[in-house]
Computed example of a mutant assay.
Amino acid sequence: MVMVPDGCAALITRFGKLEQVVGPGRIILLNPWKRVSYILNTTREYPFNAPVREAPTKGGVKASIDLFIQFRISDPVEFVYTLGAVRGFEEKLGNAVSETIRSLIYEQLAADIYNMVGEKTGRLLDQLNQQFRPAVELPNANITHAEPSDRKYRVDLAAPEMVRVAKESAAYEQEWGLTRKRRIDQLQMDIERAKKVRDARIVEVKASLNKAREQVAQLLEEQETNAQRVRFEIETRGRSGLIAAENEAKAQQRLAQAYRDNRAVLQYELALRRLEVGAELAGKAPQPVVVRTDGDGGADTSALATLLAAQLLPRPAALPSAERPAGGVGNDAA
């Protein structure tokens, strides 16, 4: 039993002859003469470096180029039995790349070798794909390094470039110096402007703070004034109330004293009036007359003598009806 991974293809052979190509999954070989000879990944792209050394240019100058290629196996059978699997494909691809690159280098001048780095390699890919299809597909190729092989020639070739680079560097340094000076001046101006703005804001903040302090002091003074006014009003009201209470108490005291005095006077006048009325009634009251009716003195005690004596007594004057005491009628009748 053999397990074929995803994205792979397995070649089953019998005595070296291809019998079957199977895809991913579990394979059970019942025939003991059959076996899985190759398992190839048909989805992965493999890298391949193809350096070319000492290839002549159009002017006869030797040049070296490094080529980076990516390939993918599209037909496992063709890859194994036509290209010779991995070793055979590497050899064939190396020879094809070397031949193609040498033809490309031969078309270039030595001074233009540096320009081949990163250049489009569409024609190179077309030539290689024509040679290796349908077994292998080459989707991408890139020249990563290109230069003349002779070091002295490289120096001579690079001298004008170095001069140009030096001039550009000097110009860049000068321009950068001017730009730097302008930026420094601009920054200093911005700093000064920011300082002025900061000072102005500080002045505004201080003015606002002083104004706020004045307002707070004014509010405190107003609150203190209001508190004093309220305190004075309370004290005045309390003093007025106290005085009014004292006056009322004194008036009540005087009134009580006057009431007591008036009562005593009234009682005195009432008692005096009673005495006067009593004296008047006493003066007008009938005087008792003693008539001796006992027989010790030898007087007459008969009824006729008593009637005669009553006729001889003076009669009391009659009292006014308003001053007549209660029971007067009974007395008169008596």
Rank of each mutant, 00 (worst) to 15 (best):
L313P: 04
A285L: 14
T57M: 03
L138T: 07
P134R: 09
P24L: 10
V289W: 08
L187K: 08
L304N: 02
P134D: 15
L266A: 12
G327D: 01
L67E: 00
E233F: 01
Y268K: 06
R72F: 02
A171R: 05
T225D: 01
Q70K: 12
G94R: 15
P76E: 03
N49A: 06
A55P: 10
N41C: 08
Q127T: 12
P24K: 06
N129K: 04
F89W: 04
P316Y: 01
E233Y: 04
R87D: 08
R274M: 12
P148G: 01
T179G: 14
I184D: 10
L18T: 02
Y81A: 10
Y81L: 10
N95C: 02
P288K: 05
V77T: 09
R324S: 14
R324T: 14
I65H: 00
A244T: 11
L272V: 13
Y153S: 06
Q218A: 13
R182H: 09
Y268R: 08
L220T: 13
R263E: 15
A135W: 05
A310K: 08
A212V: 00
K120E: 12
E168T: 08
G328W: 14
I101M: 15
S98W: 00
V216A: 15
A9Y: 06
T301D: 01
Q186M: 09
T179P: 01
I73Q: 09
Q257L: 15
L93F: 01
S240A: 12
L124W: 02
Y259P: 00
E119Q: 11
K34Y: 04
A171S: 03
E54Y: 02
L209K: 07
F68P: 00
A55S: 15
E45L: 03
R154P: 00
K284H: 08
D199K: 11
E175R: 10
